[in-house]
Structures are given as C-alpha cells and as structure tokens.
C-alpha cells in the first residue's frame, strides 16, 4: 500500500458517500444518471466476487463490502425510493453500446481465460466507461448541481491517483498490470474535459453550466 493508492481509495470512498448522502438528504436524484450507477454496481459485483474466494486484508474486505453496499443502496434510492425525481428523459445513454463491446473485449483480451479473471477484466474495462452516461446526461441538461460536480471530481481523481500508484509500484515493486493501466488511462482521460470545467468554474464559486 502506498500513499497514492490510499488517497485514491479514500477519494473513491468519498465520491460514493457524497453521492449517497446527496440523494438521501435532498431526497432527490435530479441530475444523477441512474444508468451510470447501475454500471458501477455491475463493476463492483463482477470485480469483488473474490470476496467469496480469498481474503487479502481487513481493509480490502471492508472497503469492498462498503463499495458494493453503497452502490446498491444508491441504485435502490434512484430507481425505487426516489423514483419520482429520476430524470429518465435526460438519462438516455444507450448502455448496451458499452456493455457488449466491453464484454467482447474482456473475452478477447485478458490475463487468464478463467471465469473470475474474465469477470475481473470485464469489470476493469466497464469501469473505464461507466461514467459516460453521467457525463452525457450533464451535456444534455447543460448543467450540474455543485455537489454532483464534487462527486465527479472525487470519482475522477481516484483513478488518476491510481495511475500514480501504478507508476510507484512499477518503480519500487516491479509490479504492473497493463490491462488495469490502459483502462485507467482511458478512464482518467474521459474526465479531463470535466476537470477543466471543475477547476475553472466550480472552484471559482460559479455553477457548472456547459455552453448550451
């Protein structure tokens, strides 16, 4: 464990908690893409099946349980409890255009042709594009609540910190996982446009509104 991975995990945890609290306290999921949250729940489910097969550390196991629990709770709040506030018209990204290619790629390019490894690979590829429905929804509505931008910033920062963690681990441990690195680079690049808007607008106290 290194400082970059630790802060990456904490940033990811913060993002998940911020979103869950935002929906719970405001009793509304306006501006939130339910499709992205479903994709994240799939990402955690397919990636953390090893909870059933191997124990790495208390930290590892507890974080995985928290991620899975919070992501399903968030999906539940969006599609069940606060369904009336779900903006389905703007959450119109065709996720099948993500899941099918990612599923195919996971079967073709992986480290080991075993079920757990293919599911893990699928999860890594899916996570790199899982935020697209959310970014697409913001581009359609033309704006985002400030709390949502903080959620997105933490979500994007987490994988950016993981990129530094992988540089650190390659240099000090000779460890690297090309699949995770390439997907992580793609994932972080997808946030660049948002990062620019976040730094130039939200951090200056303005509301994030895209040029219509």
């Amino acid at each position: 464990m290194n400082i970059f991975r630790l802060f990456g995990d904490l940033s990811h945890l913060a993002a998940i908690i911020i979103l869950l609290l935002k929906i719970w306290k405001s009793r509304s999921c306006a501006g939130i893409s339910g499709k992205s949250q479903i994709l994240f729940a799939i990402v955690f489910t397919t990636r953390y099946l090893d909870l059933l097969t191997s124990f790495i550390s208390l930290y590892n196991t507890s974080m995985k349980m928290i991620y899975i629990g919070c992501s399903y709770a968030t999906v539940y709040l969006i599609y069940a409890k606060f369904r009336a506030t779900y903006d389905g018209n703007h959450d119109s990204f065709r996720v099948e255009f993500l899941i099918v290619p990612v599923g195919g790629l996971a079967v073709l390019i992986n480290h080991d042709f075993s079920l757990l490894e293919i599911l893990w690979t699928f999860s890594i590829y899916l996570e790199s594009v899982a935020i697209l429905p959310q970014l697409f929804m913001i581009s359609k509505t033309g704006e985002a609540e400030t709390i949502t931008t903080h959620y997105l910033f933490c979500q994007g920062l987490y994988r950016a910190l993981y990129l530094i963690n992988w540089i650190w681990r390659f240099y000090f441990e000779g460890f690297f996982d090309m699949i995770a690195i390439v997907a992580g680079v793609v994932q972080t690049i997808l946030y660049c446009d948002f990062f620019y808007l976040y730094v130039t607008k939200v951090l200056k106290g303005k509301k994030l509104s895209l040029p219509a």
Binding site: R5, I56, S57, H111, W120
Partner: peptide, 10 residues
Amino acid sequence: HSGECKKDEL
C-alpha cells in the same frame, strides 16, 4: 503473469 500477482487492489 497474473497467476502469482494477487489482486490486492480495489
């Protein structure tokens, strides 16, 4: 190869 490198990351 991924065989020996455990998946210790989240």
